[in-house]
Design a protein around this nucleic acid. Structure first.
Lengths: 217, 217
DNA sequence: CCTACCGATCGGTAGG
DNA sequence: CCTACCGATCGGTAGG
């Protein structure tokens, strides 16, 4: 064979199909995307797709597995650095939000899976991301002494949930929220989370602006 | 006229269409639901729908406005009671999660709006729910002295986000998560949130199990 | 990998 | 409010 044996012609075509389908799914949803659109974007005839995938849903589940947001986000989190709990959480939060803001589209994949497939591919997915979660838990364990007695997996779930929803609410409401609802909002979320998980003895350094009364409304 | 003038025949038909469309949209998504399915479920001929709605999207935006989850959830939150901050937040959290668990479907409406319409109806919606948010902010203001200096709207955003995502992650991963990720998980979320927003002086009562070391992994 | 086709179904409308 | 229809498009396949 003359061609690169590592990336065969078949592989390249298969990837082109997945790439095209990914782009179309996230911008239109699954049901609203036609196989003809996928074919055109991938540069082949409609019929040719079926040499690589058995059906439309087969394409979707393949896209889901190798483009799922968790898969892109968790590795960034496992790279988070910091000498203290505060630094680590801040670094992780800003990596997470950066990544989400850089590619807001790929959240759609997860939402499509939820709405149009009722989460039926979730087991497949969880299997894939579990190792990353284990790594993340391991990295957090270093700071055990600074933490309240909360199971680490629960904390990670709370962390991801909190900042995912920070991003989602911002996305949905960005032009509509009253200013008080968005000023320094990431910093505020980080502080709520940090105070929520840290041992009370450490909780005071720099995070609480002590005597001032809360802003009204 | 013999018929009840308050609920006219036209009104009843219109409602039947909205009810049918709502049920179908949340279970299949928007694009995957056909006007013929809506007509059949509402008990009329396809053509008749167009006497009440201009288009399929017109039906969707009408459904979105009067069935949106926020609209059903925020009133429950404004009814939350409690003499202390802790009681109030616990009551609100359990109301929110109860409501979500009672009707997990209606989250789909919001997700469909996000995926298939990219949030284009959000302004319309926000206008409708803003009064409820104001009420909620007012009720929280009673506890100002127990709170860290965080703008109240930010706190509400954090609250809703945290427990929405608690629900979502539970829904997606319920059978897959390691046990440590779900035991007493709502209670843990509530505690993280409470410790995150309370003044440190009050933060200690009952919430922190002081000396024990965190569970590993 | 393509051409040409299948039956089914789509959103929407005319005309009454 | 219904019947009957429009042109367009759907996922998928046969056959080469």
């Amino acid at each position: 064979m003359i061609d690169d044996p590592v990336i065969s012609r078949t592989d390249r075509t298969r990837r082109a199909i997945l790439e095209a389908a990914y782009t179309l799914f996230i911008s239109q949803g699954y049901a609203a995307t036609s196989m003809r659109q996928v074919a055109e974007r991938a540069g082949l005839a409609l019929g040719s797709i079926y040499n690589h995938f058995a059906s439309k849903e087969d394409i979707f589940s393949s896209v889901l597995i190798d483009r799922h947001p968790y898969h892109q986000i968790l590795p960034h989190l496992t790279e988070a650095r910091g000498n203290t709990m505060d630094e680590f959480v801040r670094d992780a939060a800003s990596r997470l939000v950066d990544e989400l803001e850089k590619r807001p589209e790929f959240l759609n994949l997860m939402l499509i899976e939820l709405v149009e497939f009722k989460g039926k591919h979730a087991p497949l997915l969880f299997e894939k991301i579990f190792p990353d979660i284990q790594i993340l838990i391991g990295r957090m364990a270093v700071f055990q002494d600074d933490l309240r007695p909360i199971p680490l997996p629960m904390m990670i779930r709370a962390f991801i949930g909190m900042f995912f929803s920070y991003f989602l609410t911002g996305l949905l409401l960005k032009d509509l929220m009253p200013p008080a609802m968005q000023e320094n909002s990431l910093e505020t979320f980080v502080n709520i989370f940090l105070n929520g998980i840290k041992q009370p003895s450490q909780a005071e350094n720099e995070l609480s602006t002590h005597s001032s009364t809360p802003e009204t409304l």
